[in-house]
């Protein structure tokens, strides 16, 4: 029983990490209808900025979020204004390739600057855990889960209670109708890309608490982010949170009760099933 509870707890904690790294991808797709293949680049930039701040100034990764969030917003909005915006009426595959190119540039730039070695950061709480009854919960993972839930609440409130959120939802629903109603669609696109990128970079900051940092970091998690977004609903932030937790639990139960080697298979089976079911629904 203790083992089952440990595995469930681990699944929930891992799942909230999945959700956090996928929020930005869902938001950008929802508003711009763009599959952001540069999402991996922003995740990777987040871990590198955090690692560098820690290695150079001893800055705690949690404090570094104060830097990665505005930096991510600025970089994301710039990418949208200078690149994505110019291709807004092109076929989707053009934007897809463009953003893939952005990711390759970032990845190779990181190789040039930092090399390919695995790097890690260590804080006073990196290896701490909390005993809750018979369970042992990792403090860094609890922190990331708390941020993931906080991110969900802030994002949901912003989308429902603010004018910017209203504008984002209006553009997501019908771009032309929103424009006719006076919503500055171009600015909303830049804001959406900026928020999505800021979320990705802050997710990277938090994930540096337990994952090692390499230029391939984004590749490791991009597909998982897609799984969560497809499963949760491409534009549904709440669905993404539930899907992330569901996927985390499914992976950990499979790893524990069937075989650890099948852990990643679960994600891709779920992704395939979700795509097939969506297709069947739309037919």
């Amino acid at each position: 029983m203790v083992d089952l509870l440990s595995v469930l707890a681990s699944g929930i904690l891992v799942g909230t990490v999945y959700a956090y790294m996928a929020y930005g991808l869902g938001l950008i797709y929802g508003v711009l209808r763009v599959v952001n293949l540069a999402h991996g680049a922003f995740l990777t930039l987040g871990v590198y900025v955090t690692w560098w701040l820690n290695a150079t100034f001893g800055m705690d990764p949690l404090v570094s979020i104060l830097i990665t969030v505005p930096l991510g917003f600025a970089l994301g909005a710039t990418v949208e204004r200078t690149l994505v915006f110019r291709l807004r009426d092109s076929p989707p595959v053009t934007t897809l390739l463009l953003l893939f190119g952005v990711w390759l540039i970032v990845r190779n730039a990181l190789y040039l600057i930092f090399g390919g070695a695995d790097r890690s950061l260590l804080t006073s709480y990196s290896l701490e855990s909390l005993a809750v009854g018979p369970l042992t919960l990792s403090i860094p993972r609890l922190i990331v889960s708390a941020f993931s839930l906080l991110g969900f609440v802030v994002l949901a409130l912003m989308l429902k209670r603010t004018w910017s959120g209203l504008a984002l939802r209006a553009v997501a629903q019908d771009r032309e109708a929103a424009a006719l109603s006076g919503v500055p669609v171009n600015r909303v696109w830049a804001v959406a890309f900026g928020i999505g990128s800021a979320l990705a970079m802050s997710a990277g900051s938090l994930m540096s608490l337990f994952y090692s940092v390499t230029p391939e970091f984004g590749a490791r998690f991009l597909l998982k982010s897609f799984c969560v977004v497809v499963l949760g609903g491409l534009t549904n932030i709440g669905g993404i949170l539930v899907a992330g937790i569901g996927l985390g639990i499914a992976e950990d139960l499979t790893a524990f009760y069937i075989h650890t080697g099948y852990r990643d298979v679960v994600s891709f089976l779920v992704l395939t099933a979700a795509l097939v079911m969506r297709r069947a629904d739309s037919d």
Binding site: D3, G248, A255, T260, D264
Partner: peptide, 20 residues
């Protein structure tokens, strides 16, 4: 005697299995 995938996103469930 169990394998795991390279670049796994989490090892907690495997470690719980080791403990068991």
């Amino acid at each position: 005697d169990e394998s795991f995938e390279h670049l796994s996103s989490d090892h907690t469930s495997l470690i719980v299995k080791v403990r068991s």
